[in-house]
């Protein structure tokens, strides 16, 4: 009985965590989908979002939900600046060049952040209580992270489907040359998508702190970069929606498998859950190289 109860609790937490992971991967997939640029500096932008949430709360008592708006604005501004200064010149360069540039940008952001914020591990306490559900306790902050992820993903989805510019972005993802001949200003779409991708990533940093409000540090991003890449591949890499769903699946696998792996004697099940997600990634690629939810 305890086994089932724990499995259910873990799946519940896995779903919440997965929604945050999913949102934290959408920006990566968007940028790759439109510009074919692999943002290896992804985690640095999540870190920026986490610090925005932290400072707004500590300095002005502003709850993270409000900081979301600031985060996306700041993120889009940073994204646009990076696009204008660097990425613009690299769109047609080999993959490797843009990959390296994003790596350097990521390092620069982290080191710059360290100069102004220090290398301390910080956190904040936004105490709004919690609720007992499905054999475990869930704080409202985590539920809010869950709900906001879904709402934000839905808003982005609608924006892509219903607005003219959103449709233009999708057209570029489908077929770059075709979009150009249809009269779409591709360079404007690039700038917008890059900036929006970074904006979403910074915003997801705020949600990350809603789930884990402690351990905020300038180097915290590396962990999320790795996870985001795995999730992005699971989700088909070029598809932000695929990424969002894949985030869920990833969260469920990571937390859910813990209880099962715990049945093996003499191992560390938590470590093995990480191994398992790599195996799942490999298996998915073996069976369906376009990703679990690819081809959208």
């Amino acid at each position: 009985m305890a086994f089932v109860e724990q499995l259910i609790s873990n799946l519940l937490y896995g779903a919440i965590l997965g929604s945050v992971y999913g949102l934290a991967t959408m920006g990566l997939s968007l940028i790759f989908g439109v510009l074919r640029i692999v943002n290896v500096g992804h985690g640095a932008f999540i870190m920026v979002g986490a610090f925005i949430a932290y400072w707004m709360f500590i300095l002005y008592g502003i709850p993270p939900l409000i900081s979301l708006f600031l985060a996306i604005a700041v993120g889009m501004a940073i994204g646009l600046a990076i696009y204008m200064l660097v990425v613009k010149r690299l769109v047609d360069a080999p993959e490797l060049a843009s990959l390296l540039a994003m790596f350097a940008i990521g390092i620069f952001i982290e080191e710059f952040a360290k100069q102004i914020w220090g290398a301390d591990y910080v956190g904040y306490s936004w105490e709004i209580g919690g609720v007992s559900m499905l054999f475990t306790e869930v704080p409202f902050t985590k539920l809010l992270a869950f709900a906001s992820s879904i709402v934000i993903a839905a808003v982005v989805y609608v924006w892509f489907r219903k607005t003219k510019i959103g449709k233009a972005v999708r057209a570029v993802v489908e077929d770059r040359e075709g979009a150009t001949t249809c009269g779409i200003d591709v360079s404007r779409i690039y700038a917008l998508s890059f900036s929006l991708g970074i904006g979403l990533t910074v915003l997801s940093g705020v949600l990350v702190t809603l789930f884990t409000p402690v351990g905020i540090n300038v180097y915290m991003g590396g962990e999320y970069t790795l996870k985001a890449f795995v999730i992005a591949v699971l989700g088909g890499l070029a598809s932000p929606w695929g990424a969002f769903y894949a985030g869920f699946i990833f969260g469920l696998i990571e937390n859910g498998s813990y209880t099962l792996l715990g049945l093996i004697p003499g191992v560390e099940p938590f470590g093995l859950t990480r191994f398992l997600s790599s195996v799942v990634l490999m298996l998915v690629l073996l069976v369906k190289p376009t990703g679990l939810l690819g081809g959208e």
Partner: peptide, 11 residues
């Protein structure tokens, strides 16, 4: 990550 966690998790 896969190999690292196989060694860690599998002891």
């Amino acid at each position: 990550e896969g190999i690292k966690y196989l060694i860690l998790g599998g002891k």
